[in-house]
């Protein structure tokens, strides 16, 4: 049934298409140029990223080194859950963290129902939208990004990209090499809904909180500037 339908549909599509060859089609597409991107809220990519994360109702911490990152993670978990436990994916960047420094007790693997907090390693961050990007697979189970009450993200500022086009330029070599990630997840905020009387509520199905720990040289001054940008938005009635 489906193969007959395929033939019928393909024939109709062919009949309605221009019938150009692959080279002509690719050349026409290449000639269309690139899409305009959103202006960044600051010329510094890191500040722009942080401002957009805050606009997306995310929260941020700055860690000077890995030990400090673990301590910040420990404080966050304790503050929200009076616990020291978290679940982390099998990403080597997470396995190599000095967990004892923060008194954190990680379990590596996938989140089970009822486990309230997970930590994921973001491959990239996108300044244009304030999104963190995960390649889901062996090291990054997708449910760790979706099931917990609070989603913690470790991101190196050296992996910040200006826009979504740059993201594809990073991913394409992996895809072309034949090792396509099962999923590419861009997460730009906590799970949210406005389906009831258009009132925004966080934690529709997934994390109620989305907290990013930036490593690799971000500064508290940059974070202050990002906060000032968002405060200015609020004053002007913007986003």
């Amino acid at each position: 049934m489906s193969s007959e339908s395929r033939s019928r549909i393909m024939a109709k599509v062919r009949g309605a298409s221009r019938g150009q060859g692959a080279a002509a089609i690719e050349s026409e597409l290449a000639g269309m140029g690139v899409a305009p991107t959103a202006p960044l809220p600051h010329e510094d990519t890191c500040i722009a990223f942080m401002a957009n994360v805050l606009r997306n109702h995310g929260t941020l911490d700055i860690a000077g080194n890995r030990s400090e990152a673990v301590k910040l993670i420990g404080q966050y978990i304790y503050q929200h859950f009076r616990s020291h436990r978290l679940v982390a994916g099998n990403d080597p960047h997470l396995a190599a963290m000095p967990w004892r420094d923060g008194g954190v007790l990680p379990r590596f693997g996938e989140v089970e129902p009822g486990e309230p907090v997970a930590l994921s390693y973001a491959q990239w961050g996108v300044a244009e939208t304030g999104a963190t990007v995960f390649l889901t697979g062996k090291s990054n189970p997708s449910r760790n990004n979706l099931l917990p009450e609070r989603h913690l993200v470790l991101l190196d500022v050296n992996n910040l990209l200006p826009d979504l086009e740059s993201l594809w330029r990073q991913i394409e070599p992996t895809i072309e090499a034949g090792s396509r990630p099962r999923g590419i997840q861009c997460i730009a905020g906590p799970s949210s809904t406005a389906d009831i009387e258009a009132q925004l509520v966080h934690g529709a199905h997934g994390p109620r909180g989305w907290h990013i720990i930036l490593t690799g040289g971000a500064t508290h001054e940059q974070l202050q500037t990002a906060r000032a940008i968002v405060a200015c938005d609020d004053t002007l009635g913007g986003s």
């Binding site: 997306n56 996938e110 304030g130 062996k138 997840q185």
Partner: peptide, 24 residues
């Protein structure tokens, strides 16, 4: 639609779970 720069989740799915993967 919502006035956002990007929605909370924008995901790209290629196919089924591969060998050794924990979920999907």
């Amino acid at each position: 639609t919502t006035g956002q720069a990007q929605t909370s989740y924008t995901s790209f799915y290629s196919g089924p779970r591969r060998e050794g993967e924990l979920d999907g």
